[in-house]
Design a protein around this nucleic acid. Structure first.
Lengths: 212, 212
DNA sequence: ACAAAAAAGGTGCAAGTGCAACTTGTATAT
DNA sequence: ATATACAAGTTGCACTTGCACCTTTTTTGT
């Protein structure tokens, strides 16, 4: 069972009951507006109902780092996503609707008697599980000390997903260097070495693993 | 609500019903034995009932890296812990009992009608949530490019938990260097610099932040 | 009580990386 | 058609880091 939305398997009427039970709030934001700056310290879970937003970390030197893209059905919040420090902002990149749930209501044992609630909880369980797997992947890469090893680990993980020698990047090489947490030009240098040594080929945003 | 065990809030009889419903298996391992090597590719969740084990990653060069400690009530498995590649082993470090659950049974919507199952699922939800927060913390550290910044980020995170200038390491400095994914002696060198510059003091395994 | 193993602490050196500063290419907008 | 912005690609250089190899101290096992 692959869950894409926290509301999978719920009828419209169940969804409405759920909203009542959890006393959810729906907030609307305009493009470039910050999403609930005032709720940061609360223990909440947010779900993107519509639109697109980004979680951005602001470093002490003013550098902005993209932590996470939030699309429709993305789940985020203090405990769930990369938002456990104070130096971040969630910015609506389009007009965006956000559903907000009090985390304490979510884990209230009394709610467990409602079928629709339990379905919802199981969906969240699955979504968070997937997130956890993604984080573990990233940690496996970041743990490598050298750029070459980070690249090869990234290729390995992507290769294992599709079993195809061709890996098409879902983003720019700049984004890849952010994901690997290395300097962009140092990464290019290492890619060049891998090309010269005959391990890989690169055409546009597709990397071909010649050693597979 | 802080959940420590997946069986919190369950009576003994509910626990037994749960075992029946999920058709759990309990496996016993002796010290230094590998835990279900044959089940690696299955989609399962394991819970440590008794004992102590470690998840260890074996690199291509034979290096062994400790990924995770598994104590009583720890939850692990293909999707949940750092065990999503093939080069790892789970080793019982004492005589250890493991409860194994088929993940597909866990997410079977039919089970959601049983109160005891829902409590169990909510507990797992909480435990995984905590894990996710821990992973996010680690990623925030690993993303930093320099050892000094990784150390300072680690101190920052620990400081925010207790608001105490004294940070007592729950492990050795060697373990800290593994956690930060840097060379041990390079980390010591940087700690020395931080001491010399008056930012920190170190006594045994306690680091005092002089800038707080 | 002793031996063995592991942690703590340190240093020189080579290799790797971050950073700044370019050029070139490719979209997107006016 | 031109300007603007951003991605892609490259290079020199200084600094950081990993690594190998030590010594000393502490912990662990018998």
């Amino acid at each position: 069972m692959i869950v894409n939305s926290p509301f999978d398997e719920l009828t419209k009427s169940q969804k409405n009951k759920l909203y009542d039970l959890l006393e959810v709030h729906i907030y609307k934001y305009n493009k470039n507006q910050e999403i609930f700056p005032t709720l940061k310290d609360e223990n909440i879970i947010g779900i993107i109902i519509d639109g697109f937003a980004q979680i951005i970390n602001i470093e002490y030197n003013g550098n902005e780092i993209l932590l996470e893209d939030l699309v429709k059905d993305s789940v985020f919040g203090t405990s769930i996503s990369a938002t456990d420090n104070e130096n971040y902002q969630i910015i609506a990149k389009q007009n965006t609707e956000v559903l907000v749930i009090d985390y304490n209501k979510l884990i209230n044992p009394k709610n467990l008697k409602h079928a629709y609630f339990n379905i919802f909880l199981a969906n969240l369980f699955n979504i968070i599980n997937t997130k956890l797997r993604e984080k573990n992947e990233r940690i496996r890469i970041l743990e490598k000390k050298q750029i070459r090893d980070k690249l090869l680990e990234y290729f390995e993980i992507e290769y294992n997903k599709t079993r195809l020698r061709n890996i098409h990047l879902p983003f720019t090489f700049k984004d890849l260097s952010d994901y690997l947490a290395v300097n962009r030009s140092a990464m290019f240098r290492e890619l060049k070495h891998l090309k010269e040594e005959g391990f890989i080929e690169i055409k546009d945003r597709t990397v071909t693993l010649l050693y597979k």
